[in-house]
Computed example of a mutant assay.
Amino acid sequence: MPETIFEPLRESHSIQRSLIRKLMRAKPGPDRVALFTALRMELSAHEAAEERFLYVPMLMDDRGLHPSRDALADHHKMDDLVEELQTPDHAGRHWMATVHKLSEELHEHLREEERSFFQLAGKILNDAQKISLARKYRKDYDAMRMKLSATM
């Protein structure tokens, strides 16, 4: 069976979980900076493509309106935390406290998406939409990663 929108989303979720775990364990220095940059890039590419190719179609159905708005608000909160983390030194108690806050927000958001939002989307979207959205998501996600890798 062809890939649906949910497979590439779960792949990115796995990458995000791995990167945030590694970032929380990393010592100050180049490795921490590289992990933070990789996480920023992954979150940005994922959020942009997910909002375009999952949230927008879900917003078009009354059942998906409120859950999509909540998910968009989660993305905004995480974006604010990532912005707060963009400091020259990537160290200190405040920086690590913000990383922990980001980790909590991220894990909660991913759990909510995988446990309830995806199930609702599975009911709202038909099979052809799920397959088409997967292709569009991957194309947009890959293009965004290329663009971000050239600028970060």
Results as ranks from 00 to 15, higher is better:
50 E>P: 05
55 Y>F: 14
40 R>H: 12
137 Y>N: 01
95 W>D: 02
42 E>K: 03
14 S>F: 08
30 P>K: 15
114 E>P: 04
137 Y>F: 15
35 L>A: 09
5 I>F: 10
18 S>T: 13
18 S>N: 12
70 D>F: 12
92 G>T: 10
58 M>E: 01
125 L>A: 01
24 M>T: 10
13 H>Y: 05
36 F>A: 12
15 I>Y: 06
8 P>C: 09
106 L>G: 00
133 L>R: 01
1 M>G: 15
128 A>V: 09
122 G>K: 02
47 E>G: 09
6 F>G: 02
35 L>V: 10
58 M>T: 02
113 E>S: 00
75 H>L: 00
15 I>E: 13
120 L>W: 01
107 H>D: 09
19 L>S: 05
40 R>Y: 10
106 L>V: 00
117 F>K: 00
57 P>E: 07
64 G>T: 03
68 S>W: 08
85 L>P: 04
57 P>Y: 03
16 Q>F: 01
1 M>E: 12
118 F>C: 02
50 E>G: 04
11 E>K: 13
117 F>C: 00
77 K>S: 10
35 L>N: 07
134 A>G: 06
97 A>P: 01
149 S>R: 14
59 L>K: 09
138 R>F: 00
52 R>S: 14
81 L>H: 02
73 A>C: 08
97 A>N: 14
99 V>S: 02
22 K>D: 15
25 R>L: 14
43 L>R: 08
74 D>T: 04
116 S>V: 06
50 E>L: 07
116 S>W: 11
53 F>H: 15
147 K>T: 11
65 L>K: 15
126 N>I: 05
42 E>F: 03
65 L>S: 10
7 E>A: 13
77 K>H: 11
142 D>Y: 07
6 F>D: 13
94 H>G: 10
139 K>L: 10
77 K>L: 12
13 H>K: 06
46 H>K: 04
93 R>L: 13
129 Q>E: 15
77 K>C: 06
118 F>H: 10
1 M>I: 09
71 A>E: 09
